[in-house]
Computed example of a mutant assay.
Amino acid sequence: MATVPDWGEKTSGSEVAERFQGSIRGRNVLITGVSPNSLGESTAAAIARHEPNSLVLASRTKAKLDEVANSITQYAPRVRVHCIELDLSSQASVRKAAVQIASTVDHLDVLINNAAVVTSERKETAEGIELQFGTNHIGHHLLTSLLMPLIIAGANQPREPSMARIVNVTSQGYRLSPIRFHDYNFQGSEVPPEEQPAEWIPAHMKPDPASGKPYYVFTAYGQSKTANILHTVSLNKKYGGEGIRAFAVHPGSIWTDLSRNLAPDDLKIIEGTSTFWKNQDQGVATTLVAAFDPKLAGVTDRVYLSDCQLEDVVDHAKDPALAERLWLLSEQLTAGDGQYS
């Protein structure tokens, strides 16, 4: 259980940051996916108001990063804000960004892997990986691996409470699909029953290679969000002994620019998925609980939070064997060297 058991879907990020300001003060925090009017910006704003040492903001567009950074300096002039260009759909960009980050801070207390993409049209990363899997998971897997020396250094800082955290922003949409190890790239290969979309999903909302539809946006998105949770499982197994805790969070239903690449029919599906739509501040509350609640340091049996509380997940998102299989695939797809290069 988190520190405040009655926090829920209406809790604001500002409230969470205020409660845990002692955990924020003096920390180095990196946030991916930061642009104006985004969850990344709202996360950064809530943290900045409580005197972190450094905020490292990473995203694709420098002008947008600068706009957010300039805004932060207006109300938090003492916070060091660093802007790093990062395109998670290009492993060369990820490697370049990791080098820049390592030259900017000597340790990281909190890494918030917030960036994501969703698209109705099948696209690929620079390496030829399906875009949602390649950006939402593979890009963050590589970035996290490259930054692990900085995160371990954060865990070794002589401060209490120890706050070395990795937060992977996932989605309740993970339920839509397990990892399709036999066809993660959506090229029409046959997949076994355990890798198929959930049975309760209507047939027209699933890939159907036989009818010429090997790709479906929400199956691909679901796979990438399952990957975020399994990545979290693996991080805890591999680095828990270093004093690092990782959590995956579902921020809730929030209208953001994330849906800009959805076709009208797919956008209508999204519109019908929730009875409560959070504002931006409410949408970052769970992320901030995962990042800064000191009570979570002792949690080892669950990795997923929703509406500011720990929750269980379905089997395909917590099986240690699947997590290890995904880790090995991710290492293969990123060359697996784990070095700044």
Rank of each mutant, 00 (worst) to 15 (best):
D257Y: 01
E127I: 00
R159C: 08
T3A: 14
E160N: 10
Q332T: 08
K96N: 14
E41D: 07
D265A: 15
S14Y: 07
G26L: 05
K268H: 09
K268T: 10
K237T: 15
T232G: 13
Q282P: 12
L329S: 02
S162F: 06
T273I: 11
L150F: 13
V191I: 00
K213C: 09
A44M: 11
I254V: 15
K96S: 15
K96R: 15
V68A: 09
P209W: 02
S189E: 04
S14T: 15
E9S: 10
Y184S: 01
Q332V: 07
H140D: 10
L131G: 01
F20P: 02
A116G: 13
S71Q: 05
L305S: 15
D109S: 08
V79T: 15
W255V: 06
D307C: 05
H204S: 15
V79W: 01
V303W: 01
H316E: 00
G134W: 01
V313H: 02
V284W: 04
V233C: 00
W277I: 03
W255Q: 07
G134C: 00
A203C: 08
K295P: 03
L328A: 13
T43H: 06
Q132R: 01
S71R: 15
L55V: 11
L143N: 01
D87G: 06
G272Q: 11
L329F: 08
V105G: 05
L267M: 12
S259M: 05
R260E: 06
D257K: 12
D6L: 09
E190S: 04
E85M: 13
D87R: 11
P214G: 11
N136T: 07
T3V: 11
H140E: 12
R165G: 03
K96L: 13
V284Q: 07
G243M: 14
H316P: 01
T125M: 03
G134F: 01
F186I: 06
V299C: 14
I31Y: 04
Q157L: 12
G134H: 00
T144K: 10
S177W: 00
C308A: 14
T43A: 12
A63P: 04
Q187W: 03
S23F: 00
T104N: 11
P264V: 09
A291N: 09
L322A: 04
D87L: 12
G243F: 09
V4L: 14
V99I: 14
M163K: 02
D337W: 06
D208W: 12
L235S: 09
S253Y: 07
P52N: 09
G154S: 09
E242L: 11
S120E: 08
H137M: 01
R95L: 02
P36R: 08
V118S: 11
P36N: 13
G22T: 07
S42V: 05
G128C: 14
E311P: 02
P209F: 03
I152E: 02
I270D: 02
E190A: 03
T273R: 12
P197D: 03
A164P: 06
K10C: 07
N228Y: 02
L235D: 04
E190K: 04
L88N: 10
V99F: 07
L131K: 04
E9V: 14
A290I: 13
E51I: 00
P77W: 11
P161G: 10
I24W: 05
I72W: 00
F292K: 01
D281Y: 10
L329V: 10
S71P: 05
T300W: 12
A69L: 08
G188M: 00
E160M: 07
P264Q: 08
N156Y: 08
T119Y: 05
H141A: 06
